[in-house]
Amino acid sequence: MQGNQVLPGKTTSGSRGRSLLAKISDSDVAYSWWHSPVVVIATAVLLVLVLACLFAPLIAPYDPFDPASLQLMDGFSPPMTTSSFSGNHYLLGTDAQGRDILSTILHGGRVSLFVGASATLFAVALGVGMGLLAGYRGGFADAVVMRIVDVQLSFPAILIALLVFGVARSVIPPSLQESAAIWVLIFAIGLSNWAQFARTVRGATMVESHKDYVAAARIAGKGPVKILATHILPNVMGPVLVIATISLALAVIEESTLSFLGVGVPPTQPSLGTLIRIGQQFLFSGEWWILFFPALTLVLLALSVNLLGDWLRDAINPRLR
């Protein structure tokens, strides 16, 4: 709707001659971000968590994996205690081996985030590729890809990850298992999440490829690869971004679930899920902090990513508001 009169006294926005920053801060997406306090808080929490985990080796007060600095005597210290043996201060307490919970959380979060992000990237790459192929080519390629997607989508991601993980574990020789475990995990989680990207991208690709700007490009003599890369891909990335955000939360949860089930990362590289698994053993005996703080971190992480994803979906697609 354009052209009609605009009431006087209010500004109309032109878009020429203004800096990129001004344009961004004036955009509808930025407006809706700034005007939803929950989302602003979620962004802040996520930023703090991600940065803290990223720089865990610099920030963490102790190195939980250095046997030399381990104080076995400090085991089961409750939060906010200063040990009378080592003089160390433990903000969030220690576990059975006297490892500082805060430090293990930072290192564990790092592993969780790394696995989650890599798995999501893998899923995006595979899903977008297959989706573009199926949506643009149609016919047989489409039928085959979509059948696989349908079947896979009807199986829960966690089951597929378990199966892939189980098979990979028995194929890889035991000597390599420990070092390969994290990559197997990324592969398994990524493979269990690609299908929804493929489905979404395929749908969007079919819509876009029937639009006339694609016909115009074909008349201009462009080949399918060039059309997909320069025309269609940029136009289908919006929904991909939204799903990727939500999928990141899912992948982090999935990783922790697998580690919790004892089939995830090796115990030498504990993730948040591993820490929760360990903490669960001490829940009944009253050492609640060993479980509580890793669990809280995990939930905060997943919740802030989900909040962002939820908001992003509404902001990109205002029709749904």
Partner: peptide, 16 residues
């Protein structure tokens, strides 16, 4: 190819 061109119906869908 150069000598043949096309104009489409929906000007909203024919420009990327």
């Amino acid at each position: 190819r150069r000598r043949v061109q096309m104009i489409f119906q929906d000007p909203y869908a024919s420009l990327n």
